[in-house]
């Protein structure tokens, strides 16, 4: 345990002037703002946003649907030739409610569903849900 001491009493007004000066001298420092669309920060490796789906790997186990805390994932029937996916069901993701918790990525037994750095997902209100085919496409090929 330590007792915190009150700060040393300054001479009236001098302390205030010191505080004002300490704020004012920040004018000589470089701004920290990043001009976003032109400059981009370095994203760490683990930075995750958009969910991708590898249609060939998905076995339709519905684990991702079960583990999703927000019920953002629902299974869709897709007619596709994939011997491992007998039921022909694949997840779709509603990015309007997705919180990027990564639970689906962690639980996926075949690593079919995974998250990537892509994060610019501006869309119109009614098209937040990505169908399984759209999930497997890169972001700029998805019809908005």
């Amino acid at each position: 345990m330590i007792e915190v001491k009150e700060p040393k009493k300054e001479v009236p007004l001098i302390g205030t002037i010191k505080a004002i000066a300490s704020v004012g001298k920040h004018i000589f420092q470089k701004p920290v703002t990043l001009q976003y669309p032109e400059e981009r920060p370095n994203y760490p490796d683990r930075f995750r946003y958009r969910i991708f789906l590898s249609l060939d790997d998905c076995v339709g186990c519905t684990l991702c649907e079960q583990v999703c805390p927000n019920r953002s994932i629902t299974m869709q029937k897709v007619n596709r030739d994939n011997p491992r996916n007998k039921r022909h069901i694949y997840p779709d993701v509603n990015f309007g409610t997705c919180t990027v918790c990564r639970n689906c990525e962690e639980i996926c037994p075949t690593d079919a569903i995974y998250l990537t750095h892509t994060f610019e997902l501006a869309r119109t209100r009614n098209s937040f849900t990505y169908s399984p085919e759209e999930l497997s496409l890169p972001e700029d090929e998805v019809i908005k």
């Binding site: 300054e10 009236p12 007004l13 302390g15 205030t16 010191k18 505080a19 300490s22 704020v23």
Partner: peptide
């Protein structure tokens, strides 16, 4: 400490 000083050096803050 810098942030701390901008607060506590101020008479008005105290």
């Amino acid at each position: 400490e810098e942030i701390f000083n901008t607060f506590v050096k101020n008479d008005i803050f105290i």
